[in-house]
């Protein structure tokens, strides 16, 4: 399992890899550098034990401290509460977005088998134009392929708009998104 710091209120440039000891022990190092060796000889080298084997060179010190603070912060809130909020806000957003004429949600329209992000498209308004209107209203979304072009082909759409929710997203934020989408439709005279 791997995760990144900047998607859990932490800094960019750092993340974590979790794996079973026997698997990680069998894996060769992917980088050479300081702190990852045990002995070095002209004929061959041996590697430091886990996890140092995979942490060659100067570590991202400030990032590690920041990620630690993020972990403490989330643990203090409680990951079960974070998950419950994410599920509730996603359910609310699915309901509100589902009421917009001409809007198609990609993937499940119920809050099952999905995380706190919803991709959608609006008939007649390109995602880049949708996001431009939302941006002018202070609503930040992502437009394009979201690193998943084959998935867009699967759904038969050229690209999509994606709204992401997290522990700080409120129902008022979702309402602002829905209002913005209504404005985008009006601006481009659709529906």
């Amino acid at each position: 399992m791997a995760f990144t710091g900047h998607k859990m209120v932490g800094p960019t440039g750092i993340g974590a890899l979790w794996g079973r000891t026997e698997v990680l022990t069998a894996l060769p190092p992917f980088l050479g550098g300081g702190s990852m060796i045990e002995t070095v000889a002209m004929a061959g080298s041996t590697w430091a034990p886990l996890p140092a084997k995979f942490e060659a060179g100067t570590p991202p010190i400030a990032e590690a401290i920041g990620l630690g603070a993020a972990v403490d912060y989330l643990a203090a809130i409680g990951m079960d509460r974070v998950a419950a909020h994410e599920q509730a806000i996603t359910a609310y957003a699915l309901e509100r977005l589902g009421d917009i004429d001409g809007l198609t949600i990609l993937g499940p329209s119920e809050p099952v088998d999905r995380g706190g992000a919803i991709s959608f498209e609006i008939d007649g308004v390109h995602p880049h134009d949708v996001s431009q209107v939302l941006d002018s209203l202070g609503v930040a979304v992502r437009a394009g392929h979201h690193c998943a072009k084959p998935a867009h082909r699967r759904f038969g759409v050229q690209s999509s708009t994606r709204a992401s929710f997290y522990l700080y997203t409120t129902t008022a934020d979702v309402d602002a998104l829905v209002d913005g989408l209504d404005q985008a439709k009006r601006f481009f005279q659709v529906g």
């Binding site: 995602p127 880049h128 437009a143 394009g144 392929h145 072009k149 867009h152 050229q158 690209s159």
Partner: peptide
Amino acid sequence: EAEVHHVNPTCGDE
């Protein structure tokens, strides 16, 4: 006489 296909990879326009 000539046909080209151009894309904008950042947004998917073709």
